[in-house]
């Protein structure tokens, strides 16, 4: 794990990997959305509005996966003091928040024609909205600690905040089982999928595609933060003469 402790060694891999992740992600997203919009058959109950599934599910997965990433980064920062962990945490936060917001808004747009409402305070929606606020809190904390010039830009308070926020992840996942909710249960679980095969495969493409794309964005953000750290270190040395 500490093989990547040296930013230079990390960058030697991250820089060539970024465009591959990005463009393969874009390709898969376009193919998956095309198939989801025009090839997959309409749902027996919801008709064409179910097609929002192909972007709503990847958004939910990356919103929650993003916070899982923040949690892993926080543990690596607190336990192993890994120098890249804080950088990774800061890099994940913004795209994670974007996808959480997309999950909420595409869900809202989907809810209107199917459920008959834009928004209801049910367990799933409320806990997902809480995660958006947690992301905003994390970004604010990370930014204020970066302004104070802490190494890598994420204070230990911010990392601990990520750990506490992770408690919301099981709440989001089980909200539809613990409580009577408007949102339906999970379609895909350990026991298999409740989505017909002809409607499932485009979802595989978009989930994979958005995941690659997300990885590319995180790598770009990490490169930006590492370069900013280099600039600051250089300016500090120059001002000291």
């Amino acid at each position: 794990m500490h093989a990547f402790a040296n930013p230079r060694r990390f960058l030697a891999i991250a820089v060539p990997v970024t465009p591959w992740c990005f463009w393969s992600g874009v390709l898969l997203i376009v193919a998956g959305c095309w198939a989801g919009l025009f090839i997959a058959p309409a749902d027996y109950l919801q008709g064409d509005s179910f097609r929002i599934l192909y972007i709503h599910v990847p958004a939910a997965w990356l919103g929650m996966g993003g916070w899982s990433g923040l949690t892993i980064a926080a543990v690596m920062q607190l336990v192993w003091r890994h120098p890249l962990a804080a950088v990774a945490g800061r890099a994940i936060a913004t795209p994670g928040a974007v996808f959480t917001a997309l999950c909420l808004s595409t869900g809202s747009i989907w809810g209107r024609p199917t459920w008959g409402t834009w928004w209801e305070w049910d367990g799933r929606m409320t806990s997902m909205l809480l995660m958006l606020f947690l992301y905003i809190g994390y970004i604010a904390l990370a930014r204020s600690s970066a302004d104070r010039g802490e190494a890598g830009g994420v204070s230990r308070v911010t990392a601990i905040f990520a750990l506490i926020g992770a408690l919301n992840l099981p709440v989001i996942h089980y909200s539809v089982e613990w409580w009577n909710s408007l949102h339906q249960g999970s379609s895909i679980g350990l026991s298999g999928s409740k989505i017909a095969g002809s409607m499932l495969w485009p979802l595989g493409l978009t989930v994979l595609g958005f995941t690659f794309w997300f990885t590319a964005i995180v790598l770009l953000r990490m490169r930006a933060i590492l370069a900013e750290n280099r600039i600051e270190a250089r300016l500090a040395r120059m001002s000291r003469g």
């Binding site: 959305c33 919009l37 919801q46 008709g47 064409d48 509005s49 097609r51 929002i52 972007i55 709503h56 958004a59 997309l102 808004s105 595409t106 747009i109 989907w110 209107r112 024609p113």
Partner: peptide
């Protein structure tokens, strides 16, 4: 009508 909603969701994304 479902398509305006579908287009709005994809467009936003």
């Amino acid at each position: 009508a479902p398509w305006p909603f579908v287009i709005a969701a994809y467009g936003l994304t």
